[in-house]
Design a protein around this nucleic acid. Sequence first.
DNA 1: CACAGATAATTGCATAGTGCAAGTACTATG
DNA 2: CATAGTACTTGCACTATGCAATTATCTGTG
Lengths: 168, 168
Amino acid sequence: MKQTARAADDGLKLSAWLPYRLFLVAAQVARPLESFYGETFGLSQAGWRILAVIAERDAANASEIGRACALDPFATSRGIGQLTELGFAVRRASKSDRRFAAVSITRSGRTAFSRIAALGSAIETRLLARLSESERTTLDSALTRLEGESARIDTGGWRALLEDAGAP
Amino acid sequence: MKQTARAADDGLKLSAWLPYRLFLVAAQVARPLESFYGETFGLSQAGWRILAVIAERDAANASEIGRACALDPFATSRGIGQLTELGFAVRRASKSDRRFAAVSITRSGRTAFSRIAALGSAIETRLLARLSESERTTLDSALTRLEGESARIDTGGWRALLEDAGAP
DNA sequence: CACAGATAATTGCATAGTGCAAGTACTATG
DNA sequence: CATAGTACTTGCACTATGCAATTATCTGTG
């Protein structure tokens, strides 16, 4: 996690490498939640994410949903399909432009969401309990910038990364 | 990211939920790296993680490797198999206990690792450049505690989570 | 020493998830 | 009114994952 990285840095230590550390926390924390909504509702990860999005944002179309939870159009379509099969969501074609379908959460979808969200909040609470108030504030604002930078890294692709490392 | 979460919290907002935010940064940042080592070397995610582990820790056996990069024995075995096929690693049965196989990185494995690590370091550098020195320090120590807590959350499973949320 | 019971790692196979080409249904535009 | 473009959706091949069963090996006990 040192800042003075050379272009060819063999000293990368997985357990100290920031992206791996973030991944590890996210993966470990996602596992119990996933097995909960998987066993209880037969929901996939994409399904849960979409459910969370339509719970707070009614009548969104597929691409809005996809953008909000970082899913490609295929995964989004399948996730919505899963939710409608489970009775957790309904699709209604838009009146003005029938290519768009407004997706809404159903009552039973909201019930399922509440139960998963309770577990999700419990996880977050457990994590935040390990941090001081000022650490939470710092983490919040740091994460906002990391989200922005990681999005740029993603869209740039690996060639762009090597370019600015090679010619800084 | 509020601390006062009730047992049944409907107000979970995906984009503000700490585990999702960590996941998002990790996933966005992993994508260009993955396509690099995938296209260039035909390496899987597990393969890359194992390569990083054996680059810094010679002659480790499969379970040590698995522990070090959070892979189950199946994925570890398959990852090592991939690395040996690519000529990036060799297995040698241990002299003292032939159930164990010591896995070592080869010269070409180290070359591949160097090239991937360069990209990995470039990514980390880009991320850290967005943070101040004190933010880096805070993030480092906060992440250490989050890693510990997430490991406990993972091993406890979802039932344990609902119990201590229900009876705090 | 034999041999039941661990342990480390691997393999087979069924199932689940992903990526992409192609398709449908619709709208906008010259 | 053909053409192009948009918003999904589906089918299919391929990949990954989870888990039972297997192999090979070692250890403790009578």
